[in-house]
Amino acid sequence: MTSGVESAGRPSWAARRRLSAVFWRRGWLRGLLLLLLPLAFFALIYLAALVVLLISAFWSVDPLTTELVRTWNLDNFKTVFTEPTYRTIAVRTIGIAAAVTVTDAIVALPFAYFMARLASPRMRALLFVLVLLPLWASYLARVYAWRLILAKEGALNWTLDRLGLPTLDIAYSNWAMWIVFSYIWLPFMILPVYAAIERIPDSFLEASTDLGAKGWRTTRSVVLPLAFPGLVAGSIFTFALTLGDYITPTLVGGASSQFIGNVVYANVGIANNVPFAAAYATVPLLVMALYLVVAKRLGAFEAL
């Protein structure tokens, strides 16, 4: 306690002294107090919601009145896993999430390397701003902007046409979704990769050079393995965020672009079939759980 406290009234000062003494003697109490609010929040809002979701997946609705029927059955899960339509949608969602993750990894690695190792402090600050700047704008505004860019008579085709190149017909397609997702989640890949590369001691790179390794060999044997946990950490973001999205598919997707999220949204908001939505929502939950287990094995959580 510093001078600021001493200037306060005597009794309150003594009480504070006593309180801080209690906290000092019982360290666990301090920890509990710090964690109480976030833990309560986590348990009540997050876990409780998940549990309710899982339970309702075993119920069903009356088709005519759409009233909830609380009898236990596995019909929803049967539909999810046997109907080819839902399998197609799940495979599409996971496939595009994987494609977006790989794309972001390829783009982020050299960028993060430049930022961490080659850029001057001034340049680095500028690049940080550039990476984070899009996050300040609304997600919706950015997706709508892409819709205008990719439209048949949009900015992209206008430019291609001016350059005398053939125009592209990729608006409202899975290609459009891939581009937009890759753009939107890129900062979440760059930041952890940057953190990982920044942590590599200079001496490692010098040692590699001393041993006669050229640039490519150093990259492959020193930089890449040490940046890998960062890549995996970033991939958790890009993969999970793509997996759960339903806005981008709605806005820039085409005739065959439904995601798991779109089916869930339609079942809750339009068909009023919450149990089926819950059952289908367990698919990304399982995929993500699996992904996290693998990521942990690969050391992703050491890079955070």
């Binding site: 984070l132 996050l135 979440f188 930041l191």
Partner: peptide
Amino acid sequence: MKKARYVMWAALAAFV
């Protein structure tokens, strides 16, 4: 470098 870490955590918080 400390500053950079700080920015990263801020981004993470925003993301959550």
